[in-house]
């Protein structure tokens, strides 16, 4: 029998971590408990953090939005602050798994799992999210792209916990875009996905653009060269094609059960072509 703990405060978490250095933390359990049941991992202690009210909920703080890491996907989808400011994240959450999974799974879990196909990750990259990592001794803040180091790999010790996500309110980005390609609409792991923030001037010039791709590399992929091609131009098919061809060279997808690497490479580029829908000639 494994020991399982259900702490309700962070102080309890730190004490349990001291007593049980090998215990594994889970929140929704939608990923960890699958691996555990299939025997892919063995653990002798589990810390379920679903009752940690301190790390749940959304706070609007001036120019920033703070999301408790233990906030479920469903809670985020129903939150007015998130809906008003972070449409790109809302669009991604709507494609994430299914209603019961969204009632259980948390945004912190999606980050710490660091799956290349994590649906919230491309939006969090383009939004410039930073993460609050706490231990008994201190709290540190790290950018999400410096926290996730590979598939399932994050830079965090066993004595630390991801407690919150800070997102600057996106300013001037009138367009929030997210698209995910999967084998079916719900319950599908992404074959490729792309999140993008974009600002287009009244006369149709791309003032700024931040795209990021999921499922086409070991971590979320960004592409400064494609951004540079698009910035300061009008959205025209030829320009998007040119940027897409750079994207296809930049991504580093793998073959797996869901799709081949070549297909993913093509799809990653083609996802950028969709931005033509925001074309405006200023009239």
């Amino acid at each position: 029998m494994r020991r399982v703990y259900l702490p309700t405060t962070l102080d309890e978490v730190w004490s349990i971590m001291d007593r049980e250095p090998n215990a594994v933390v889970y929140a929704g359990g939608t990923d960890l408990l699958v691996r555990l049941h299939r025997g892919l991992i063995t653990v002798d202690g589990l810390i379920c953090i679903e009752r940690l009210a301190q790390i749940q909920g959304v706070k609007e703080e001036h120019d920033e939005i703070f999301i408790g890491a233990g906030t479920t996907h469903a809670e985020l989808l129903e939150n007015n602050v998130i809906r008003e400011h972070l449409s790109v994240l809302v669009q991604a959450l709507e494609t994430l798994a299914s209603p019961p999974i969204r009632h259980m799974g948390t945004i912190g879990g999606n980050i710490v799992n660091a799956s290349p196909a994590g649906d919230t990750l491309p939006p969090l990259y383009v939004l410039g999210a930073s993460l609050e990592i706490q231990s008994r001794e201190k709290t540190r803040t790290v950018r999400i792209d410096q926290f996730i180091s590979g598939p399932g790999q994050v830079l965090m010790t066993d004595k630390e916990l991801l407690t919150g996500i800070r997102i600057p309110k996106p300013k001037g980005f009138g367009i929030h875009h997210f698209e995910k390609i999967g084998r079916r609409k719900s319950q599908a792991c992404a074959i490729a996905s792309m999140a993008a923030l974009m600002s287009v001037s009244p006369d149709g010039m791309v003032e700024d653009i931040r795209p990021a791709w999921g499922s086409v590399g070991p971590t979320v992929v960004t592409c400064a060269e494609a951004e540079n091609i698009l910035r300061g131009t009008r959205l025209r098919p030829e320009i998007l094609e040119k940027a897409a061809s750079v994207v296809k060279k930049t991504v580093s997808p793998i073959d797996d059960i869901r799709a081949g690497a070549d297909y993913r490479r093509v799809v990653a580029g083609n996802l950028l072509l969709r931005l033509i829908r925001y074309h405006s000639d200023g009239t």
Partner: peptide, 25 residues
């Protein structure tokens, strides 16, 4: 594994999957 929904129960009125919950919860 959370893919099929056959084990759905209501927890405080909200649908959750009983195959991905441990008794302590």
């Amino acid at each position: 594994a959370g893919d099929c929904g056959a084990c759905t129960i209501l927890v405080d009125g909200e649908s959750r999957l009983s195959c991905l919950m441990l008794a302590i919860q």
